[in-house]
Simulated scan of single mutants.
Amino acid sequence: MLLIFPCRGSNKKYQMLNQNVSSYVFQQYVFEGGAVQWARYRSNPAEYSSNSEMTFGNSINKHKSKLTASIVRIKYNGLRAPQWHFNANEHGLLLEGKAWIGVVDDGANSVATYNVTVGQVTFFPTNTLHWVKCVSEEDCVFILFFTTHDELKTLDVDDAFFETPEDIASRSLKPEGGVDFIRQFQKADVDQAINLPKNLMDLIQNASLAQSDDTLVWKYFHDLIGSKEYLFPGGIIQWARHRSNTAGLTENEKIYSDSINTHADTLTFATLRIYNNGLRQPHFHFNANEMGYVISGCGVIGIVGAEPVEEFSVDVGDIFFFPLGTQHYVKSTCVEDLYTILAFSTGDQLETLDMDDYFHATADDVLAQLFRVKQEEFKKIPKFQADQAVNIP
């Protein structure tokens, strides 16, 4: 069972992807407006670029993880084509740049457009049309998570259009000129998944970057970097999640919380910052698989589950996966903080149990019988006022 996979390219802001890549990194799909890399399952083994990629893909599929990851780079003025996914919600975190987003929901009665900057989260429900345009002079880089462990199924608007007979498209759109208007559209020679025409300035005279009302935007957006910081002795956690108890949430955060809980099979997001030599202590999740991406720093991960997994190292650009119920820990091993984005396969409140909590909750006499150590010895395990979820020596 492989639980880590490097997904490297280049990103100057986060120094996240080493350009001296080796032959086993994820295959990069290049478009005129950017590039995409995947951590995903493929039903056809021949479509994997390496045995390591196939092992990772088979692992997330075998465990029914409801998680697929992708790194998307969009050049300035590049457009990730309007599209929808048949079999997955999409959650993303912007790592670099500034992007303008559009979401079309509810039969076009609800159209949300908004800007996102570094550290903010996007959410696109299943079968909801959406687009992403990079509007910063630097490239936009997203880490995306999709709620499927099968092959992701996507349809771009241009592909849907060119697959539709001319007369049907004309009857639907009713343009001036009828079918002749439809015939002026020519299918491009290259895939338009991330589009950037050379004659863009001739095509567009007045680009609109409208911002919709907050009550609409926050259904699809969360300011993760600006959210409450949960402080621990060894680090910080911030959340984009559903809370059954909304006390402490802003009105906009309540909208997002309700949105991801209303839609089926959504994700909980978190950023985890672990200080040098800090430890996210051993823990497991009752109700979610977990997938993570290393933004900066480096660390060591350990897993205890149904199958043996040796402790392994993670570095900038690596993606890792913890199946539901497996106990795992993450330790920071660089001078620089270990900073990760985590995705959990639940839109309900995440349920987690840490090692110190279950030791304290288990009766001393039960522990003594199990470990064959005198009962009074377990009094030596201290209880702290500060939560030790992320601790430090």
Rank of each mutant, 00 (worst) to 15 (best):
Y275L: 15
P125T: 07
N87T: 10
F124I: 14
L324F: 05
W84R: 03
Q369A: 07
T164L: 03
K383D: 14
H328E: 08
A343M: 10
V157E: 08
L95W: 11
T352A: 02
T113E: 08
Y329C: 07
T268W: 06
F359L: 14
G107R: 13
I71M: 09
S172W: 13
D213Y: 07
W131P: 01
T266E: 13
A389L: 10
E166N: 08
V314R: 01
F286I: 14
K75P: 01
A210P: 09
N261C: 00
T346W: 04
L67S: 06
G234F: 12
F344H: 09
G325D: 08
F56E: 11
L342Q: 10
A270Q: 13
L2I: 15
F145C: 01
S43P: 00
A288M: 13
V72P: 01
I182T: 05
N44W: 03
D105C: 02
P45K: 14
H360P: 13
L79T: 02
T148P: 01
P45F: 13
D159K: 06
S22W: 12
A270P: 11
F123Y: 14
D156H: 11
H242P: 07
D213V: 02
E166R: 04
S172L: 12
K379C: 13
D158L: 02
A386Y: 13
D106P: 00
I143M: 00
N289Y: 03
L17F: 13
K254F: 09
G78S: 09
S70P: 04
Q238I: 11
E290R: 06
I71A: 02
D357G: 02
E176C: 01
K174R: 06
V373N: 07
S136F: 04
I71Y: 12
R171C: 08
G305M: 05
E32H: 04
A39N: 08
E290P: 06
D223Q: 07
S65H: 08
M1C: 12
L203E: 06
G119A: 01
A363D: 12
K62S: 03
P82H: 09
W218N: 11
N289K: 01
S49V: 15
T147K: 02
D180F: 07
T126E: 02
I392H: 10
K153P: 12
F322N: 02
D150N: 01
A386V: 08
A386G: 12
V21N: 07
K66M: 10
I295N: 02
D167V: 05
A112Q: 08
R183W: 12
G119H: 04
Q15R: 06
V190T: 14
V217G: 03
N89G: 05
L95M: 09
K133Y: 08
L67N: 04
Y275Q: 10
F384H: 12
N199L: 05
S227F: 09
C140V: 09
N115C: 04
I274T: 15
I143D: 00
D354W: 01
S212Y: 07
Q15K: 07
E137C: 00
S52A: 03
I260D: 05
S345L: 07
I143C: 00
F5M: 06
L209H: 05
P233D: 03
L196Y: 11
M355H: 11
K383E: 11
H283Y: 06
A368D: 15
